[in-house]
Amino acid sequence: MIDVILKKGKEKAVQHRHPWVFSGAIEKVKGKPENGEIVKLLNAKGEFMAYGFYNDQSRVALRLLEWDEAVAVDEAWWRAKVGVAVAARSYILEDGFTDTCRLIFSESDYLPGLIVDKYADHLSLQILTSGMENIKPVIIDELQKLLKPASIFDKSDASSREHEGMQPSFGILAGAQPPELVEVVENGIKYGINIAEGQKSGFYCDQRDNRRVFAGYVKDKAVLDCFCYTGGFTLNAFKQGAKTVTSVDSSALAIETLKSNLTLNGFDEREHRAIQSDVNKQLRKFKEDGEMFDVIVLDPPKYAPSRSALDRAARAYKDLNRPAMLILNPGGLLATYSCSGAMDMTTFKQILAWAALDAGKQVQFIHQFCQPGDHPVSATFPEGEYLKGLLCRVL
């Protein structure tokens, strides 16, 4: 096993079991490891620190796996880690009201670069690191043994693969081709999931708990669901008695899937309107038309992929939330979210305060949203905490 030497003074994060070592913290590599190869990390004195994946094309040159020198990172090690992660989600799937969730959440499950989502009897897999790509056959085999899925579909088309020197990977890994729409149940609501063509791994199960909590506030209300995708918030709103729901998304596929999900749940006769449009543009149009709502959901894509983009993202969040506040009836509720890991909750609250000031409104924060238990946050990897949201009363 090739040795990688850490620069003097760079030991603290490794000792605290943070899984990333950046290229600038490395003093020397004794040899020429292949990208994705497991190497041994030593401190400047030559003492063992950890085993990890190496990649010289990535800013994160090492993704650490094991801090005990006596423990072999072998096939049994990988299978055990997968088994622990899968077993930890069993409580979500036991009640029969949900058969979809995230089974493996990358570094937060101590499997850097591996994401696995369960959609009924089908699995969607993303591999984002070269090291995990090397282990893929073992991962697939263990998932088959544990879950006996009808299929395992590869959705490893994320841009982060480029940073690891890898091409996108897409298609069937095991089993049969999944149907165009896989029917799943979340919170007792049915969804048709397009694994092959849907965004990310196919569905945003990280909002499962938040959708349920949000829906408790919508009975007899006029609801606007922005960035609605395939209707998570829309369907939960109708289930809990919303008077009307307007759903907005720029994706034609998302809108069509949303409509089929309404029919699937018997909500197609409800007072619903679907609008394919840019959300910011549509919010301005609602204002111009004098249209008002009682409850608004804003669940945008990631605006801040890194800390360097935070200032630009802050402006984007402000420019999104301000016009939404202007079309809320007095005392109306705004459920607004950020999935940017670089955006902390304190900053997000400040942005909303600025948006309210510009809109001439007052805002009360009445509930904080976060990611659910199948998206855990490791104590040694705070970067895994990315989803945050606020339920605001706008006066």
Rank of each mutant, 00 (worst) to 15 (best):
I2G: 03
I5G: 08
K12R: 15
V14W: 01
V14K: 00
V21F: 10
G24N: 15
I26R: 06
G36R: 05
E37H: 11
I38Q: 05
L42Q: 09
G46V: 02
F53N: 06
V60C: 05
V60P: 00
V60N: 03
A61V: 09
R63T: 04
D74W: 07
D74Q: 07
G83F: 09
A88R: 15
I92H: 07
L93H: 08
E94P: 00
E94V: 14
G96L: 00
G96Y: 03
C101D: 04
L103C: 08
D109H: 08
P112N: 04
L123K: 05
E133Y: 07
V138C: 11
D141T: 00
L143N: 10
P149H: 11
I152G: 08
D154Q: 04
A158S: 14
S159M: 12
S159Q: 13
M166D: 08
L173I: 02
A176C: 07
E180R: 10
E186T: 01
N187K: 05
N194V: 07
G198Q: 03
K200L: 04
S201A: 15
G202W: 03
F203N: 06
F203S: 09
D206Q: 10
Q207I: 00
R208Q: 10
N210D: 14
R211C: 13
V213F: 14
Y217K: 06
K219G: 07
D225T: 02
C228Y: 03
F233W: 14
T234R: 09
T234E: 11
Q240T: 13
S250K: 10
L258K: 01
T263I: 12
L264G: 04
F267N: 04
K281F: 13
L283P: 02
K285E: 12
I296E: 13
R307A: 15
L328D: 03
Y337D: 04
S340R: 10
A342M: 09
I351D: 06
A356D: 01
D358Y: 11
A359V: 11
K361E: 12
I366P: 01
P372D: 07
P376G: 11
T380R: 01
P382K: 13
L391I: 04
C392Q: 00
